[in-house]
Design a protein around this nucleic acid. Structure first.
Length: 414
DNA sequence: TCTGGGGTCCTAGGACCC
DNA sequence: TCTGGGGTCCTAGGACCC
C-alpha cells in the first residue's frame, strides 16, 4: 500500500504560517516576476481565480474580493517543505519526496490504515502548522486519486476494496488523473471517455497505441497492479537549468551580458551544492511569445566543454562566449536560459593535464565565494560582470520577509 | 505595462558500427 | 541481374509532472 501526503495550497499555507491574519480570507501567490497565479487558498478558488491566470488580467477581481497577494518566495517554501518531510519520515522507513509539497510513503504491512493516516495528518499539522491531505491505496496512481478525493472527506481517504476503488474512479474526471495532461485529456474526452472508470475500461491495446507505455502503466495501476515503484533513493540529476524572465524586455547587449553572467553564476552555485560538474553548457535567448506584433527569435547554442566544471569563472566565461555567438540585434528579449547537461559527480571528474591547474584555482575562488555567501547571505559577494543596478532583475512587488532563513527577518515574540 | 521555472520520460529517425 | 541483418548512440520533438 502507498500513501500520498500532499500539502493543501502549499505556498499559500506557508505565508499564512507567519501572517495568520490571512487565515480564512482569499490568498494567492504569484509566479516569478509576479506573472501568473501559482497557488490559491480555498477562499481564492471560491472567488473563481483560475490556476495560472495572468496577474494583470485579474486585478479587478482581486480588488473586488479583497484578495491578499504574495510574490513567490522559494527559500521559505523549501524550508517549510523540509520540516513537513522530516515529520512524515517518522512514520515509515519508505519515503519518496516527490515534489516540494508531496510525498509518497510505503505502507506495506501496516494495519488500520485509516487510523494511521489520521495520526500522520494530525502530527504534521500540529508540528508544522501546514494542513495536509492523505490518500492511501494499492498503487501510486490510485493513491493520487485517493488523495484528491480525501480533500472532500476530512483529509484522509483509503481506497482498499475493489468496490471502494471503482466507486471512486466512476466519479473521478479523467483529466485529473496523474499522467493525463492537456493533450490526452482533450483526445479522451472527444472520444467520450470522461471518467477514470471509463478510461480503465478501454482496451489496453488502444491505450498502448495512443498513449505509449506510459499510458499502459497508468492503466495497469488503475487496475491495482503496482507498476511505478517507490523511489526512495533519488536518481542523479541529468540536467540543470537557470532560466528567468527579466523584469522588463531588453535588447541591450550590456544588460544581457549581466543577466547571463548572473544566471551562469547561479547555475554554478547549484551545481556545486549538488556536487556535480557539467560537460555541456547551452545558452538561449527568448523574445516574448505573447506579443504578436513583436519580432520573435529564439537563438541558442550548445557548447561542449573541454573538461567537466562547476566553477563560477569558467561557466560565466563560457556562457558569455555563447551569448556573443547567438546575440541578434534588433530584438526585444524577455528571457535568457543557461542550461547544463551531461552532469557527472564532482568526484568522478577526470582532469585534463593542460587545464588542471587553472581549473583548480577557479575552484578555490568558487569555494570561498560559497562560504562567504552562506555566512553573510546570498549575493554578498559576486562577480563584477553580474552588474550592480541589474535593471533586468525580476519583479517581486509583494515579497515578504525571509522569516526562517535570514536572522534579520525572524519574527519577534513580545 | 504586465503571461513562471525546473524537471522527467518515451519515441522516431538518422548516423554509424561490424 | 541481384544489394543483409543486427545492433548502438544521439537528437529533436512531444508528452507529462509540480
Amino acid at each position: 500500500m502507498f500513501a500520498l501526503a500532499d500539502c493543501n495550497n502549499f505556498y499559500a499555507s506557508c505565508h499564512r504560517l507567519f501572517e495568520p491574519q490571512y487565515n480564512g480570507v482569499p490568498v494567492i501567490v504569484l509566479s516569478n516576476n509576479d506573472g501568473c497565479v501559482i497557488a490559491r487558498s480555498n477562499e481564492a478558488k471560491a472567488c473563481g481565480i483560475a490556476m495560472g491566470a495572468p496577474f494583470f488580467k485579474i486585478r479587478d477581481e482581486i480588488k473586488k474580493h479583497n484578495i491578499a497577494v504574495f510574490s513567490s518566495h522559494y527559500t521559505l517554501y523549501g524550508d517549510i517543505s523540509a520540516r513537513v518531510m522530516t515529520n512524515l519520515a517518522r512514520f515509515t522507513p519508505e519515503v519518496e519526496v516527490y515534489s516540494i509539497d508531496e510525498c509518497f510513503l510505503g505502507l506495506s504491512g501496516f494495519e488500520n490504515l485509516k487510523e494511521y493516516g489520521k495520526t500522520i495528518r494530525e502530527t504534521v499539522i500540529n508540528n508544522t502548522g501546514i494542513p495536509i491531505s492523505i490518500g492511501i491505496a494499492p498503487t501510486k496512481v490510485l493513491a493520487k486519486v485517493a488523495n484528491k478525493t480525501s480533500k472532500k472527506h476530512n483529509g484522509v481517504m483509503v481506497l482498499e476494496t475493489q468496490q471502494q476503488i471503482s466507486d471512486a474512479l466512476s466519479e473521478y474526471p479523467v483529466e485529473d488523473l496523474w499522467g493525463i495532461g492537456r493533450q490526452f485529456a482533450h483526445k479522451l474526452i472527444k472520444d467520450g471517455v470522461e471518467t477514470a472508470a471509463q478510461f480503465r475500461a478501454l482496451p489496453v491495446d488502444w491505450v498502448q497505441t495512443h498513449m505509449t507505455i506510459v499510458g499502459v502503466r497508468m492503466w495497469r495501476e488503475l487496475w491495482g497492479e503496482s507498476c511505478i515503484p517507490l523511489k526512495t533513493i533519488l536518481d542523479p540529476k541529468k540536467g540543470m537549468c537557470t532560466s528567468r524572465a527579466f523584469g522588463k524586455l531588453t535588447g541591450d547587449y550590456h544588460e544581457l551580458k549581466e543577466a547571463t553572467s548572473n544566471y551562469a553564476a547561479r547555475l554554478a552555485g547549484k551545481l556545486r551544492r549538488e556536487k556535480l560538474c557539467t560537460t555541456v553548457l547551452s545558452v538561449k535567448l527568448l523574445t516574448n511569445k505573447f506579443i504578436a506584433d513583436e519580432l520573435q527569435a529564439y537563438p541558442s547554442i550548445t557548447i561542449p566543454l573541454e573538461h567537466p566544471v562547476n566553477n563560477t569563472v569558467d561557466l560565466i566565461n563560457t556562457a558569455l562566449w555563447g551569448l556573443k555567438k547567438i546575440y541578434l540585434r534588433g530584438y526585444q528579449y524577455q528571457k535568457v536560459e543557461v542550461n547544463a547537461t551531461g552532469l557527472i559527480p564532482e568526484s568522478e571528474v577526470q582532469l585534463n593535464i593542460f587545464s588542471a591547474f587553472k581549473g583548480k584555482k577557479y575552484d578555490q575562488v568558487s569555494r570561498v565565494l560559497d562560504q562567504l555567501n552562506l555566512h553573510y547571505g546570498a549575493g554578498t559577494l559576486r562577480m563584477a560582470g553580474e552588474g550592480k543596478n541589474q535593471k533586468w532583475s525580476m519583479k517581486r512587488e509583494f515579497l515578504r520577509p525571509h522569516y526562517t532563513t535570514n536572522w534579520n527577518d525572524i519574527i519577534k515574540v513580545k
